[in-house]
């Protein structure tokens, strides 16, 4: 069995965007839930509760969009663990084999803990799906946001959405996808913990410091 040693895996842009995304998604979900089902919190019309909640939502939305865009850029510029190929193991034969092995481990069919330095194959695939969800949130969110100025630049950029989908459909998608992201967050924290503890892979701590433990070959 190889010895564990530390290896610098997650570069700064990967870690920064990861935590920015987390803070943004938390903020956006909390504010989004209020926007979706507000309570009467104000006593007089001169207060600005919903106004501020929406303001925070939109500021976090811009931060989130910039962070996601940066991460996508880094998928083409970063090291091999940050590259886009990591997220599509399904494209290679070896990747598919890894997915299968990991799946067997997670469903208790195998006791072999697959150890890989970057993302494991299933996680990589899951992140590809999550990024798709991010893009859905960003596109639907900006489409809804653009409606206050239908002759504006933003509306020109996302106007095609309204040609393809109904306004209420966009709203519902924006709302439901939040729940998919929340479900993902639950799964994500759990499996990161599982990997940290069981696989001693240091994914969780790795996201803070950048170093992951890797097994050296004998």
């Amino acid at each position: 069995m190889g010895n564990l040693s530390e290896k610098y895996v997650w570069e700064v842009p990967v870690r920064v965007t990861h935590w920015v995304n987390m803070v943004c998604i938390l903020t956006l979900s909390v504010t989004g839930l209020y926007i979706g089902a507000p309570r009467t919190l104000a006593l007089t019309p001169s207060e600005y509760v919903m106004g501020w909640v929406r303001f925070v939502h939109f500021v976090a939305a811009y931060a989130f969009a910039i962070s996601v865009a940066s991460r996508i850029y880094w998928a083409f510029r970063g090291n091999r663990y940050a590259r886009w190929q990591e997220f599509f193991p399904i494209l290679t034969r070896e990747g598919r084999w890894h997915m299968f092995e990991t799946f067997r481990y997670y469903t208790f069919l195998s006791r072999q803990i697959p150890h890989v330095t970057g993302h494991n194959a299933l996680a990589g695939t899951a992140y590809a799906v999550v990024f798709l969800l991010y893009l859905v949130m960003i596109v639907t969110g900006f489409a809804l946001y653009a409606e206050h100025a239908p002759q504006g630049t933003l509306h020109t950029l996302v106007g095609w959405m309204f040609a393809l989908f109904s306004n209420q459909g966009i709203r519902l998608t924006h709302h439901l996808t939040m729940w998919l992201l929340i479900a993902f967050a639950i799964h994500h924290v759990y499996s990161a913990w599982l990997m940290d503890v069981k696989e001693k892979g240091g994914v969780m701590s790795g996201m803070f410091g950048g170093y992951k433990s890797v097994r050296e070959r004998n």
Partner: peptide, 22 residues
């Protein structure tokens, strides 16, 4: 995942993959 966690906790003999030859 809670259920998965419980099962994981009881499976102590999971082995990290030996020899990764690629």
């Amino acid at each position: 995942f809670a259920a998965h966690g419980v099962v994981s906790a009881f499976r102590r003999k999971d082995e990290p993959e030996r020899e990764k030859e690629e």
